[in-house]
Nucleic acid binder design. Sequence first.
RNA 1: GGGCCGCUAGCUCAAUGGUAGAGCAAGGGACUUUUAAUCCCUAGGUUACAGGUUCGAGCCCUGUGCGGCUCACCA
Length: 540
Amino acid sequence: MARHSRKGVNRRFTVPGSRLPGHDRKVQKPTMTEERSERDAARLAKLDELRSAGIEPYPARLQQPRTHTATEAIAAFVASESDGDDALPVSVCVAGRMMSRRLMGKVGFAHIDDGSAHLQVFVRRDTVGEETFELFKRLLDLGDFIAVCGEMMRTRTGEISVNAQSMQLLSKSLEPMPDKWHGVKDVETRYRRRYVDLMINPEVREVFVARARMVQAIREYLDGAGFIEVETPVLQPIYGGAAARPFTTYHNQLKQDLFLRISFELYLKRLLVGGLEKVYEIGRDFRNEGISFKHNPEFTQLEWYEAYADYHDVMRRVEDMLAHIARRLTGGTLITYRGHEIDLAPPWRRVTLRDAIIEYADLDYAQYPTAAELADAMRAKGHHPETTSNRGRLIDSLLSNYVEPNLIQPTFVLDYPIEISPLAKKTPDDPTSVERFEYFIAGMEMGNAFSELNDPLDQRERMEWMQQLYGAEDEERHPMDEDYLLAMSYGMPPNGGFGTGIDRLAMLFTDSATIRDVLLFPHLRSLERSDAAGDEEPQP
RNA sequence: GGGCCGCUAGCUCAAUGGUAGAGCAAGGGACUUUUAAUCCCUAGGUUACAGGUUCGAGCCCUGUGCGGCUCACCA
């Protein structure tokens, strides 16, 4: 937009609102642009009026530097009040977005929001002068950023306020603010224009502050336990470490197909080979799968690997870490999620997958050694298995359909079928099962861990077996990763590994019903697509 | 991808198949301690889009778009 000079091209086209979603659908009709500009005419006229009065609506800096956030200004005034008669006046310069304004003749009130608090500003014509009062009264709009300097005071009704001595416009808003009382409720608008959601709905900001504090608590815990944080490639020539379909991309100069990672696992375990004993990574994974209240195409994952630990050690660390997060966020280990009171205090319940399925689905899969037998037994119990599934997937479906919804309190489910766990060590007493657990809270799968397989020959067999088991046409079939096998052949210490969805933890700790509420910009279908569809053929 | 539900002014919401409204926001006016300020006036709409039924459609039907819930796959 910089190419449009101030007094050059029709300024209408620089109005951000002309590209807002609700108008993109209609933007091809010029009449709508005209109507749009009519609605904006008042604010655009104010821009002209401000400039001709010598007031730059988008100044580069404050005339007087900010001395206090809203919270600090209030605190400073409260402190001075406690001095009683000896109290000295508290002079402040504050800045923020004007959220409300009440005009009454030659005096007026406004609230500014700077992210720390709302602070009332009292503006009296006799104090600020004719010119500034006119600016405040007539040329400012809700949504404008302003700076205000003055002494702190209490109004007649007792509200701590800034008694404005001077006022500066910092940034003009050309879009109307949403309803000050109701905010924005439409979820599509809230997700597509998160900035509007954040500016008007204070509880949204709280969710993301809590999420940030949660991640901070995780790093604090792991750093304190001697882990180092590392970063591994997002763009990978061979994807792996999970059962999921990847996004593909292409490097032009290398003429090479690349995949966006679906997990960090294979790279982090290479680091154990290299001698880093405790590593973790917090980063983005990408999975080309369905979208739901607990699935976004890109999501934040925590994975760690710890040499000389097995999956029992990992369980102890997981329950310890989550209790640590809860204490940091709430002071205790009790949290409420969607009406359930959940206690994260260790130790959590531990139950084998087999026992859990016996308990909740009334079926002992150990009695049915083949997929066909198990599927028959499931049908006899009134379940409806996919006919094409292998035995591991059948067991997994029993878990997610019958067990998972019942696991409200934190629970480790352990010892998984080998067919769906190619990177985990076999259990010593049962070669069809592996030392793996998933943990569940509030009926949601939260994470996954193994005693990591470190036998290179076993790993090669397992990968080759997976190739056969899933068939060439299966989209979750993974390519062989020869370099990973090579790394393991150098010798990998026995270790316990763990992965968990940061977004799901954030849902849990912020009592959010959907992953979209803990993602600042959840993935939504583009609106532009519908406009382009009629004009041109989609690209192949 | 399947099923169900939704889409009306910038925002929040009304409107038996019969003239599309209100509050807030916006524009004009009154008001020197208000706080969802108050009072008077004004403007603002291709009811998501495209068809159909009907004398007449925001409402009924079909399709499309976007969203929500849900099922399937997955963390």
